[in-house]
Design a protein around this nucleic acid. Structure first.
Length: 416
RNA sequence: GCGAUCGUAGCUCAGUUGGUUAGAGCGCCGGUUUGUGGUACCGGAGGUCGGGGGUUCGAGACCCCUCGAUCGCCCCA
């Protein structure tokens, strides 16, 4: 009989347990706590959306839409896409639920996202992000608030060391267009010195030449036109207020005139918190103002700003607090003891005391299990103890053992 | 999508110019101690060497394909 071939995990997916799960959960918990402090409302949006949600927001023909989305036809013949990002889905929800009435809305979300990419360390096909958005606020205060929150989050996760906020402005639509034209002209004039990749970018996405990794390109970019020369007064004023706000809150930042966003709906503030510790995947948290997006989805012009961060990457950078073992582990010996143990176990758990039971193997095995689980106490019960209406409680840290009346166990454990 | 490195037990790895039954440490299971952990000692299980094909008298080692991981590029919503 042929042995059944065990199916393998899908490429770019991961099974997260133990320390990795610990770090993962710590990132999420910290995010939930901090975003609540800043007044963000948690929101759940679907993992699947109509493909048009992402196709319209990103532009039908971009690489990301044509090559990197998980898109399929469902049984009803609709084109469905596994969400590759949060922003478009949240924007769709904003429109279809009439959330305009609550604007400005501060929303936070986290969960799995899917992109068909070549996996690398910290880069998966199913990956997870935390996400924060403020929709319906045109004021720089929204940008500032979001950035200060991001800064606090990273500090609370203990990864601000080696991480620096890179900040840029793309200006308003007019500034951005003028700058873009100037860049195209500049690079056209220096075409001979551009790398092959960047010649391609010149056609498709000229702003992206600015963050090319090619040495020749980098040199060329140093004297390329910068946005500052094309900013309208309003745009300049806006950026000034953002930086002033950051300074007022003592958030460290650095100006990076080559930080860009590829899509046209991005305006004004663009930012990335970048670390020097993750190789090519240096960006730990990134975002910007996307005033043009909601219109792309058929809504009225609505200003919005947001950021997202990969949970896996953050988790790799933090020292997660070790998860503590159970307060107590029960070791019943014999059938009668097991029955009593079930009663005690449920009683302790109903008092929200973290408790487990070791019911397999001999005494030694069970002690080992309790020890391996990092338990503080073991509660040993055999016929001898039960005859006296007692159990033996051993403290695994101090090693001392004493007896305890059965009806006093909860108090005993609570006090330990 | 492109280039490179790698893939031997659950984990980390060793395996000599291709040569008999593929090894270690940790972990796991059992025992020394049939009611007492963290230490020690003893024993055991676990591998069609990622998968498929080829070269060879002989392949874990060499060649091709494939899958996967890692690093860089591309992309980065």
């Amino acid at each position: 009989m042929a042995k059944i071939q065990t199916p393998h995990a899908v490429r770019g997916t991961q099974d997260i347990v133990d320390e990795a799960q610990n770090s993962f959960a710590h990132v999420v918990e910290t995010f939930e706590r901090v975003s609540k402090v800043y007044g963000f409302a948690p929101v759940q949006v679907p993992i699947i959306e109509q493909t048009s949600v992402f196709a319209r927001s990103l532009g039908e023909s971009t690489d990301v839409v044509s090559k990197e989305m998980y898109t399929f036809e469902d049984r009803g013949g609709d084109s469905i896409t596994l969400r590759p990002e949060f922003t478009a889905g949240i924007s769709r929800a904003f429109l279809t639920n009439g959330w305009q009435q609550y604007a400005p809305m501060k929303l936070s979300a986290h969960g799995p996202l899917f992109r068909y990419e070549r996996p690398q360390k910290g880069r998966y096909r199913q990956f997870h992000q935390i996400d924060a958005e403020i929709i319906g606020a045109a004021e720089p205060l929204a940008d500032i608030e979001l950035l200060i929150m991001a800064d606090q989050l990273l500090k609370e996760l203990g990864i601000d060391d080696g991480v620096i906020l890179n900040l840029n402005t793309l200006g308003d639509a007019d500034s951005r267009d003028a700058w873009r034209e100037a860049l195209i002209t500049y690079f056209q004039d220096h075409k001979d010195h551009l790398s092959k990749d960047s010649l391609d970018r010149l056609e498709r996405n000229p702003l992206r030449i600015l963050d090319s990794k090619d040495e020749g390109d980098k040199k060329l970019c140093q004297s390329a036109p910068i946005i500052d020369d094309y900013l309208t007064n309003e745009a300049q004023e806006f950026f000034g207020q953002v930086t002033q706000g950051l300074d007022a809150a003592h958030v460290r930042w650095t100006r990076n005139t080559r930080l860009v966003r590829g899509l046209d709906y991005y305006r004004h503030t663009a930012f990335e918190f970048i670390t020097d510790r993750l190789g090519a995947q240096g960006t730990v948290l990134g975002g910007g103002r996307y005033d043009g997006l909601i219109e792309n989805l058929g809504g009225n012009p609505t200003p919005a700003v947001g950021w997202a961060a990969g949970i896996e990457r953050l988790a790799m950078l933090i020292d997660a607090p070790e998860n503590s073992g159970p307060d107590a582990v029960l070791i019943p010996l014999g059938d009668r003891a097991t029955e009593t143990a079930i009663a005690i176990l449920s009683d302790l758990r109903r008092h929200n005391i973290v408790t487990d039971m070791a019911y397999k193997g001999n005494m030694k095995k069970r002690m080992q299990k309790a020890n391996a689980k990092n338990a503080k106490l073991v509660i040993i019960m055999g016929d001898d103890e039960l005859d006296r209406g007692e159990v033996a409680i051993k403290n695994l840290i101090s090693g001392e053992q004493q007896s305890c009346k059965i009806d006093a166990i909860v108090d005993f454990v609570k006090k330990s």
